[in-house]
Design a protein around this nucleic acid. Structure first.
Length: 678
RNA sequence: GCUCCCGUAGCUCAGUUGGAUAGAGCGUUCGCCUCCUAAGCGAAAGGUCGCAGGUUCAAUUCCCGCCGGGAGCACCA
């Protein structure tokens, strides 16, 4: 009997009692977490609702407290409940049987869904995230996208969902064209020479995406003063889209090397993908043509014959009202017959949902260290073996910057209009605000800031200007800082305990890496999605206070207790006959403190369900921090190893074990691993 | 002009579908390593929840109107 099940049973009891006693049918029963342990473990403010409903139904005024009293007995009949109190104006505060709960918690998985083997028959959901244009290195804003997406994937899996992770590669867009213009017209390089450059950079320990980062910024500057160069962009873009020519080949080489770099960067953060769908295949396999046919069949688009958009195929929208400057309807096909970005996106979304009747071909792109493959789409059938069943998801989550809210709305509405049977709920835009730079941070990076920008609260990062904190730079800095700390702490540990074994260099690097990832992932996850993160070096590099490192430290301390206790304690559960002795521990003066640790650690499953429903990983991040904080307090207040009362010692061990299991699972769901030592 | 987001402690942010004394971190001040790791723990100080109305037994939360900040509204991607 875990916490969720107890709460569900109690809710049912409330519904049944309301039906029996008051002849009222409650659809939902709200339950709350009381603000303090002394106020119980679950609270139902249902008596207020019932009083209102009784008045509506019979016209009789009733006292919420009296209603609560009548529900009280029914709730107390539950075997997990010790007692129920009616508090305040009519709150029902439920107190669990603490000893019984603790005994049962020992045999309960903190995340039951994860322990089950993946159900291949379960409906699949798709998460698209990262989707960095393959023309430069990823910056911290891209990492916010990837970390949010990856964490959401982990939350879905912890809720028992089958998930497919896609990273869309826009390899035929203007951004790639810009870097190609740079290579060809500024650097005067052929494909062979670019290949040599790549080899040289690799040999020097440098990365191709960093080179492109600078080149892209250089091209952006050149465009401002060189109109001929700007004209080249259109030519190059056209050649890339057409395919089958040397420029397209060169662009493909550049884009693919950048994709490799970005994958390597994200792997450092523990972020992986199943499939890389490319825009080139969406074009070459005529996904749009198929989508267009379906839209015409279903009559959701029309050809404008008059007005500003004459000659364009448009999709009428009602969510937006037109003005003199802007048409209300969304153009999907331009008057020259080419398709817009939104049009392509609708086709891609249709494929994701299994509504297109067309498919890509697939080829393995990259193999992770443990053998897992990332696949990439291809335009030709390369006869690959064991291709997973991609696409055709029940629900699609697109992790995209909130600046894309309008086009995402069009895609969602568009797909829902073509397929009303599928509906809008199948397309979810997980929008998030940008990561911006404070004027100070921008200056710290060595950028000239205009007087106007200095007045602004924050400055938007820009790949085109080369203005941003590169992901690898930041994680390198974090790892270096962490390694310094690890070395210092290791030295003082060995000084105090000369007999202890020292950590190998390899292990120290691994610990520093985990700390760095923990710090950065938590930093990006503690903000809710619709908060603009104004990047601040001091805050991002911090290892103290509300940080991932704090949470990791708490888990490391917990593990350290069990290391000292040795293996003999694991699996030594209580006997049911111990119930009274355990109750005595909880009823003692410091019993509430011990119990609050138990109940908080038991909420993980509920919190993860909340995080999924709200589409908000920050809920889990905040919980994890609070859990770590609670454990640090518990750790300080109760000295487990030195405890002389054997029952109390056993209780404390069980509580600490529950806390560390919950904390570890919470951190892992955030994509943060617990280091061996800290 | 229209749409969306934000405004909570000195700073950065949480605050579930309305609910009990509005929370955390940083910063400031003061305590705590003879005791399972001080990347820690405790305490103090700090609030007209942007302003003004409305709905309700109950509003930081829902509705309306202002004020201030941000983003979007392309035959760009």
């Amino acid at each position: 009997m875990n916490l969720l099940k107890i709460q569900e049973t109690l809710r049912q009891t409330v519904v049944e009692t309301a039906r029996k006693e008051f002849n009222i049918e409650l659809e939902t029963v709200a339950s709350e977490v009381p603000p303090k342990t002394e106020l119980g473990d679950a609270a139902f403010p249902v008596a207020f609702e019932l009083a209102k409903r009784i008045k509506q139904q019979t016209g009789e005024k009733s006292n919420p407290r009296q209603i609560a009293e009548r529900l009280k007995a029914a709730l107390e009949a539950n075997e997990s409940v010790e007692r129920v109190e009616v508090a305040g104006a009519g709150y029902l505060n439920v107190f669990f049987d603490r000893a019984k709960f603790l005994i049962e918690s020992q045999n309960v998985e903190v995340l039951p869904c994860l322990s089950e083997s993946e159900n291949r028959a379960a409906p699949k959901v798709c998460v698209e995230h990262t989707s960095v244009n393959p023309n430069k290195a990823a910056h911290i804003g891209h990492v916010r996208n990837s970390v949010l997406g990856d964490t959401f994937v982990r939350i879905l899996r912890a809720n028992g969902k089958r998930v497919e992770v896609q990273n869309y590669i826009d390899n035929t867009g203007v951004q790639v064209a810009d870097v190609v213009v740079g290579f060809v017209y500024l650097e005067n390089k052929t494909l062979e020479e670019i290949k040599n450059l790549h080899a040289r950079l690799t040999a020097e320990g440098k990365t191709f995406d960093y080179f492109c980062w600078d080149l892209y910024a250089k091209v952006g500057q050149e465009y401002q003063k060189n109109e001929t160069l700007k004209a080249r962009r259109a030519e190059v873009l056209h050649l890339i889209e057409a395919g089958g020519n040397p420029t397209a080949e060169l662009a493909d080489y550049v884009a693919t090397r950048n994709v490799e770099c970005i994958l390597a960067t994200m792997e450092r953060f523990g972020i992986r993908y199943d499939l890389l769908p490319r825009e080139s295949e969406i074009l070459h396999l005529h996904f749009w043509k198929k989508a267009f046919e379906k839209m015409r069949e279903r009559g959701v688009i029309k050809l404008e014959t008059t007005g500003k958009s004459a000659g364009c195929w448009v999709m009428p929208t009602d969510s937006h009202t037109g003005t003199e400057e802007h048409e209300a309807d969304k153009i999907l096909v331009r008057s020259n017959g080419t398709v817009t970005y939104t049009g392509k996106d609708i086709a891609y979304q249709m494929w994701k949902l299994g509504l297109l009747d067309l498919d890509f071909y697939y080829n393995p792109f990259h193999e992770y260290a443990d053998g897992k493959l990332v696949w990439i789409t291809t335009a030709e059938n390369l006869q690959s073996a064991n291709i997973p069943d991609f696409g055709g998801s029940e629900t699609v989550y697109n992790v995209i910057d909130s600046r894309q809210s309008y086009p995402q709305e069009v895609v969602k509405k568009g797909v829902a209009t073509i397929f009303p049977e599928k509906g809008e709920a199948a397309s979810v835009h997980l929008a998030y605000e940008m990561v911006a730079l404070s004027p100070g941070a921008a200056q710290e990076l060595g950028f000239e800031i205009s007087e106007a920008d200095k007045q602004k609260p924050f400055i938007e990062m820009s790949g085109r200007k080369g203005l941003g904190v590169k992901a690898d730079d930041l994680i390198n800095r974090l790892e270096a800082n962490a390694l310094t700390e690890v070395n210092n702490r290791e030295a003082s540990r060995l000084e105090k305990n000369p007999g202890e074994e020292s950590l190998s260099e390899h292990k120290k690097i691994e610990i520093a890496h985990r700390i760095a990832v923990g710090a950065l992932r938590y930093f990006l996850l503690k903000f809710t999605r619709n908060t603009v993160i104004v990047f601040d070096f001091k805050e991002a590099l911090s290892f103290e206070g509300e940080t991932g490192v704090f949470c990791q430290y708490s888990a490391v301390r917990a593990n350290s207790i069990f290391r000292k206790l040795g293996e003999q304690v694991s699996g030594s559960g209580f006997q049911v006959s111990d119930l009274e002795a355990i109750s005595a521990i909880f009823n003692a003066e410091d019993g509430d403190g011990i119990w609050s640790m138990v109940i908080l650690a038991s909420r993980l499953e509920e919190i993860i369900a909340n995080a999924l429903n709200a589409g908000e990983p920050a809920i889990l991040a905040k919980y994890t921090f609070n859990l770590a904080k609670a454990f640090n307090l518990f750790y300080y207040n109760h000295k487990i190893i030195g405890e002389e009362n054997q029952t109390k010692r056993a209780v404390l061990i069980a509580v600490a074990d529950l806390a560390r299991r919950s904390l570890t699972a919470a951190l892992n769901t955030l994509g943060i691993e617990v280091p061996e030592r800290m």
